[in-house]
Design a protein around this nucleic acid. Structure first.
Lengths: 110, 110
DNA sequence: CTCTATTGATAATC
DNA sequence: GATTATCAATAGAG
């Protein structure tokens, strides 16, 4: 789109990259909403900018609910009781992961 | 795009809706990848079809890592100390406790 | 699925 | 931010 083609690689010019990020981010969010409405799909979209700012979209409910559904889908039917142990990560990180898993499991019990 | 405009509402014809879902889903995933590459952003996209099938995309790492980052972002900066901290147990001990709880929950799910 | 006609997204520009 | 020339996505048809 636009005047001239676009190389599919990181835009080096910071100003240009920022402008493109804003425009395409808006376009992506719009497309996601459209797909959700047109085809009755539940969509979650999370975008972290290069600078770490968060942009999100969740159709049908909250992002948390969607994450839980995701966890249930991937952790449930597909890998019932397979616990792929990770290497000894940072303890805090591992604790957070375990807590999240517990939340998913608790939700599944209801 | 295409021949004729599209009403922004749920497509009633099931065949038409399925075709549109496939096409736009592919387009959305492509756009998400492009935004990630062009603007150096980390993007997570989760799509549940109306029938419950999951389609996902995670640029830069896994979806789990992205979810963790999301949780950290929303639960961290925004609600710094609203997290009921447990007693400062030894990290290893806490991990073992959490794992045990997970096992109990998994058992309950069967 | 492949193939256009046409719209919609957007890169360049102001 | 708004405008416009172009390209890319896609609706409909085969």
């Amino acid at each position: 789109m636009g005047r001239g083609r676009v190389q599919m690689k990181r835009i080096e010019n910071p100003v240009h990259r920022q402008v493109t990020f804003c425009k395409r981010r808006a376009g992506l969010l719009k497309k996601a909403k459209e797909l959700s409405v047109l085809c009755d799909a539940e969509i979650g979209l999370v975008i972290f900018s290069a600078h770490g700012k968060l942009y999100e979209l969740a159709t049908k409910g909250t992002m948390q609910e969607l994450i839980e559904r995701y966890g249930k889908y991937t952790g449930g039917p597909q890998l019932p009781d397979e616990v792929p142990m990770l290497e000894p990560l940072d303890a805090k990180k591992e604790i957070d992961m375990l807590k999240q898993e517990i939340q998913v499991l608790q939700k599944g019990l209801r």
